[in-house]
């Protein structure tokens, strides 16, 4: 593999989803199963499942809000660092051009 391909591999390395990802997937699957079995469940069973689902949703909702803030915060940070990079680079570029223009021509 060439150095460029290694860089590409590095850039494309796998990333982890949020810490509660698995919990949310399993909650969704459980909810999906519950909705399929609802026809055969007794009324109290449905109430229990609904209560569990509500609790999961509330807890999951708060987690989700926090997750959203983290997502937006990291995105904003990334944008900021990009902007700083470009601004810093352009300033450097201007300084270089000024220096070049001040050099006496041979």
């Amino acid at each position: 593999m060439t150095p460029f391909e290694k860089q590409l591999q590095q850039a494309l390395r796998r990333q982890e989803p949020s810490a509660d990802f698995s919990a949310r997937v399993l909650a969704r699957c459980a909810a999906d199963d519950a909705s399929k079995r609802s026809v055969f469940w007794p009324a109290w069973g449905m109430g229990l499942a609904t209560a569990a689902l509500v609790l999961l949703t509330i807890g999951g909702g708060a987690l989700y809000q926090q997750h959203q803030r983290e997502v937006r915060g990291m995105a904003a940070k990334r944008q900021l660092l990009l902007a700083m990079h470009i601004a810093g680079s352009k300033l450097q570029q201007v300084q270089e051009r000024v220096q070049e223009s001040e050099q006496p021509s041979q």
Partner: peptide, 15 residues
């Protein structure tokens, strides 16, 4: 088990 599968492969699918 399914839960273990999710945990093992979540990074792959997500990425």
């Amino acid at each position: 088990a399914f839960a273990s599968v999710v945990e093992t492969h979540k990074a792959m699918v997500y990425s």
